[in-house]
């Protein structure tokens, strides 16, 4: 068994999931891959198995948070030292994975964040999107006390301590930003490392105008709540 597990949450991604698995396996041979099929109705699970991943099929759709956490629980139960989170739509380049893993294995931080903004990369986005990202970055900065530029990046490598934390507490939806404050609250460190970000291979972004407003509201509230919870042990209705 390898020491790192790549977790790929997938909902009806039969067209792109095999490509992602192939490119991960060719870029980093020292990882296992688990695909969490979040109640997919297409052939995602079969395709992923054929491509060489271990597949966990959720009997009902749990949403991104519940699916990701399934992967973290699997990683915890099977003793993995590191877990990698990567999108199944092909936006993240697995060629960066060895670099991110190396930072994690060196113990430079508890979470290594693949960031689009630290250096000049080919990534471009719309103005309203950039304004939103900036706002989130400011909020997170206020909450954790140090700058994190690319707060919404879903390309992440975490160590054992974070795997154990996520197994018991992980946000239901839009987890990326909230998690950063959650980690800070548990005195875990985040390190940003520049990565190349590609245009998505299939489908378009699911975020519309109304959804963006809801997203900003939800995430801001989540950050506020995380700050209010303070740095103490919690018990309550989280995942």
């Amino acid at each position: 068994m390898k020491d790192a597990l790549v977790i790929i949450p997938a909902l009806n991604e039969e067209r792109s999931v095999a490509n992602v698995i192939d490119s991960i396996l060719s870029a980093a041979s020292d990882v296992d891959i688990v695909v969490i099929s979040d109640g997919s109705t297409d052939r995602t699970a079969t395709v992923a198995r054929k491509a060489g991943a271990f597949v966990i099929e959720l009997p009902v759709n749990l949403g991104i948070g519940g699916a990701m956490q399934t992967g973290y629980r699997f990683a915890r139960d099977n003793g993995y030292a590191f877990a990698v989170q990567i999108d199944a739509d092909g936006q993240h380049d697995p060629a960066d994975l060895p670099k991110l893993l190396a930072h994690a294995r060196n113990g430079e931080a508890d979470m290594i964040l693949g960031s689009r903004y630290i250096e000049k990369t080919a990534y471009r986005s719309s103005r309203s999107r950039r304004v939103g990202m900036l706002l989130l970055a400011v909020l997170v900065r206020l909450a954790v006390g140090y700058p994190i530029k690319d707060t919404t990046s879903g390309y992440r490598v975490v160590n054992r301590r974070v795997i154990e934390l996520f197994s018991t507490s992980y946000p239901y939806d839009y987890p990326e930003v909230e998690v950063l404050v959650l980690l800070h609250r548990h005195k875990l460190r985040v390190l940003e490392v520049p990565v190349e970000m590609k245009e998505r291979q299939a489908g378009s972004s699911s975020i519309t105008m109304f959804k963006s407003a809801y997203y900003m509201l939800k995430v801001s509230l989540a950050i506020l709540l995380e700050v209010l919870r303070g740095r103490r042990v919690e018990k309550g209705a989280r995942l």
Partner: peptide, 27 residues
Amino acid sequence: TVVLSRLTTRTVRLTQEVAILRAELEQ
């Protein structure tokens, strides 16, 4: 709604456990 939230959390947890167990069993 507090009760409902607690039930949701438990359902999610059970769903995750069942899915992991079934995948391991099948393997």
